[in-house]
Amino acid sequence: MEQGTVKWFNAEKGSGFIERENGDDVFVHFSAIQGDGFKSLDEGQAVTFDVEEGQRGPQAANVQKA
């Protein structure tokens, strides 16, 4: 798993970007967020995640709040 920080997340659209510790920013969709309840992330929040190849390039998967 990688570690990173939420660069921004739009709760209305359900997507945003995570700033990786090593590498380019990666797209995140709300469906990749693990946990119960409303799936959203806050700017500056620390997260851990896997990276998968999506239709438009790398994207975060199995996102967990650190």
Rank of each mutant, 00 (worst) to 15 (best):
A32M: 06
E19S: 15
F17K: 02
G37F: 07
F17C: 10
E12P: 05
W8D: 00
F27I: 02
R20D: 04
E43S: 14
K7C: 08
V63W: 01
V28T: 04
E21K: 13
E53P: 11
G54Y: 07
G35K: 03
F30W: 14
A32L: 01
A46G: 08
W8G: 04
D24Q: 13
V6S: 01
E21V: 12
F17D: 01
A32P: 00
A61H: 09
G14L: 04
G44K: 06
S40L: 07
Q59N: 05
E43F: 12
T48W: 14
K65R: 11
A66T: 12
P58W: 10
E19L: 14
G54V: 06
R56E: 08
L41E: 02
A11G: 08
N22R: 10
F30P: 00
A60H: 01
E52V: 15
F17R: 04
E19W: 14
Q64I: 11
A66I: 15
Q34D: 07
H29M: 05
H29A: 03
Q59I: 11
G54K: 07
I33A: 04
E21W: 11
S31A: 07
K65G: 08
K39P: 06
F17A: 02
F17M: 10
G37Y: 06
Q55M: 12
I33E: 03
A61I: 14
V28I: 08
F49Q: 00
G37D: 06
F38P: 09
G57L: 05
R20M: 08
I18V: 03
G16S: 00
E52P: 01
E43N: 12
V6P: 03
W8V: 05
N22H: 11
E21L: 12
G4N: 01
V26K: 00
V63C: 04
G44M: 03
G14N: 04
R20H: 04
G16W: 06
G4P: 00
T5H: 12
G54L: 07
K39T: 07
G57E: 01
H29D: 04
G14H: 00
F9P: 00
V6F: 02
F49V: 00
V28W: 05
V51F: 07
W8Q: 04
V47H: 00
E52H: 11
T5L: 10
M1L: 13
F17H: 01
P58S: 08
K13S: 10
A11R: 14
D36Q: 12
N10E: 03
M1V: 12
K7M: 03
E52D: 07
V51S: 04
A66L: 15
N62E: 01
K39S: 06
Q64N: 11
A60M: 00
A61Q: 09
Q45D: 13
N62C: 08
Q59R: 11
V63S: 03
L41N: 01
G35V: 10
S15G: 07
G16A: 03
Q3L: 12
I18H: 00
V28M: 05
G54C: 10
G23N: 07
E43L: 12
G4V: 01
Q45T: 09
G57K: 04
A66E: 09
F9Q: 01
T5K: 13
M1D: 08
E19T: 15
Q59F: 13
A60W: 01
E53C: 14
F38R: 07
K13D: 06
A46K: 13
G35N: 07
D42W: 14
G44N: 05
F49R: 00
A32K: 07
D42Q: 15
P58L: 11
V26D: 01
Q64T: 10
F30A: 05
D25E: 09
A66M: 14
S40R: 09
T48R: 10
Q64H: 12
F38M: 07
Q55N: 11
D24W: 09
K65Q: 09
V51E: 04
Q45M: 11
A11W: 11
F49E: 00
D24Y: 10
G35F: 09
V26Y: 02
A66V: 15
G35E: 09
Q34P: 06
G54F: 07
K39W: 07
I18K: 05
F38T: 06
S31C: 08
S40I: 09
G4T: 01
K39G: 04
S40Y: 12
V51K: 04
V26G: 01
E52A: 11
E43P: 15
A11L: 09
N10D: 11
D36G: 11
T5F: 13
Q59D: 01
S15I: 15
D24S: 14
A60D: 03
Q59Y: 15
G37K: 05
A46H: 14
T5E: 04
F38W: 14
I33P: 03
V26T: 02
E19Y: 13
V26R: 02
A11P: 11
R56V: 08
Q3K: 15
K65L: 13
W8I: 05
V28P: 00
F27T: 02
Q34C: 13
G57H: 05
D42A: 14
N62H: 08
E21R: 12
D36I: 12
N22Y: 11
P58M: 10
H29G: 04
F17N: 01
A11T: 11
E2Q: 14
S15H: 15
S40M: 09
W8T: 05
V6A: 02
F9Y: 09
E21G: 09
H29Y: 06
V26A: 00
A61Y: 11
T48Y: 12
D24I: 12
A32W: 04
V51W: 08
G54M: 07
N22A: 09
K65V: 13
S15T: 14
Q64A: 10
S31I: 04
E2C: 14
A46P: 10
N62T: 04
G23V: 03
Q59V: 11
A11S: 11
K13V: 10
D25K: 09
G54R: 08
G16N: 01
F38A: 06
E12L: 14
V63T: 00
G16K: 00
W8P: 01
Q64S: 10
G4A: 02
F9L: 01
G4L: 00
A46D: 08
D42L: 15
E53A: 10
N10M: 04
G4F: 02
V26P: 01
F49N: 00
F38D: 08
R20E: 02
F17E: 03
K7L: 05
A66G: 10
I33M: 04
G14F: 04
K13H: 11
V47C: 05
Q3M: 13
S40Q: 08
F27C: 07
R56A: 09
D42S: 15
F49Y: 06
T48K: 08
V47A: 03
G16I: 03
G57C: 06
V63A: 02
L41K: 00
D42H: 15
D50W: 15
A46R: 14
E21H: 11
M1S: 14
T5G: 02
G4H: 01
E2M: 13
F27D: 00
F27S: 03
E12F: 13
E2L: 14
A46V: 13
V28S: 01
S31G: 06
E52W: 12
R56G: 09
F30V: 07
M1I: 11
R56M: 10
P58D: 06
N62V: 03
